[in-house]
Design a binder for these strands. Sequence first.
DNA 1: CCTGAACTGAGACTCGTTCTCATTCTACGG
DNA 2: CCGTAGAATGAGAACGAGTCTCAGTTCAGG
Lengths: 155, 155
Amino acid sequence: MTGGSTAPTADPAPGEHVLRRAADAGLRLTRARRAVVAALEACTGPTTAADLAERLTDVPISSLYRSLAVLVDAGVVARVHETEGTARFELAEDITGHHHHLVCRSCGTVIDVRPTSSADDTIAGIVEAEAARHGFTATGHHVDIEGVCAACRTP
Amino acid sequence: MTGGSTAPTADPAPGEHVLRRAADAGLRLTRARRAVVAALEACTGPTTAADLAERLTDVPISSLYRSLAVLVDAGVVARVHETEGTARFELAEDITGHHHHLVCRSCGTVIDVRPTSSADDTIAGIVEAEAARHGFTATGHHVDIEGVCAACRTP
DNA sequence: CCTGAACTGAGACTCGTTCTCATTCTACGG
DNA sequence: CCGTAGAATGAGAACGAGTCTCAGTTCAGG
Ligand SMILES: [Mn+2]
Ligand SMILES: [Mn+2]
Ligand SMILES: [Zn+2]
Ligand SMILES: [Zn+2]
């Protein structure tokens, strides 16, 4: 029951799907871009360029950054900036579905967590009201939960 | 329930109060540090070092960054990293009270918004549940609301 | 195949931020 | 009030993430 047609909510194995989106945005599907998308699919949360580079030894760093920029532009990848100074990249919410982030203060790992739809509806409602009260047109929200991950608590 | 003396919720004019906290953390109250705290008090949301430098023309950039680092260390200032690459600084939530951020996608401004306590209790509950479900010990949450500010919508 | 446009890769470069170290304050004891 | 030790400062060097340049390569389409 993975979804009828193309539900933009929870597909666990996006596969070539993602690349098609990139192609539709007018990009050539090159080796580097395929590799970057595949690497991002394999991650459990937003990942730094350095981490990606480690996995993609045959993609030079300038190409890696350029591929990421191009994919962000095409709406396929999102750049997020939790609390530290270096950017992290993940597949866009259009593809993976909306989610929140658990940010470990100890090891820095960021884990995606999918809220139940009722919980997130509640949050979205509150957010909408807050924005409206300040004459702000809200287009989305990000929730980062700070704390210590299971691995870091039991060393 | 939060504690007797200094309610950490909503003081609209922290004044010397903030500096006392810094002193209690073992810092000397120098001209630069006073100036930085005063500048942060005057801002309506987290602010970049460049913006602060513009207001603090007599504080050299290396001192500005060092003062900020020292104040962050003392728990008086928080460094936040919304969606862009450069850091922003604001007084810590201990002082200003917990709040969320409206991030304008057009001009980049970040505005503080204080949720009603009932709304935030709801969010905190959801966040707590999500964290627990992943073996994560949550110590706080950040909500960033993305959109377009009133000023940018009507040019 | 041929060809023009898109893409690549090595490295120079930018810019926010941190570090260094000689000099100047600050707080505190006398 | 000074004197003094140690903290803080300031100019500039250094650093690192990320971007840009440009000559060479790949790709799609004819
Ligand atoms: Mn949400
Ligand atoms: Mn909140
Ligand atoms: Zn951890
Ligand atoms: Zn704006």
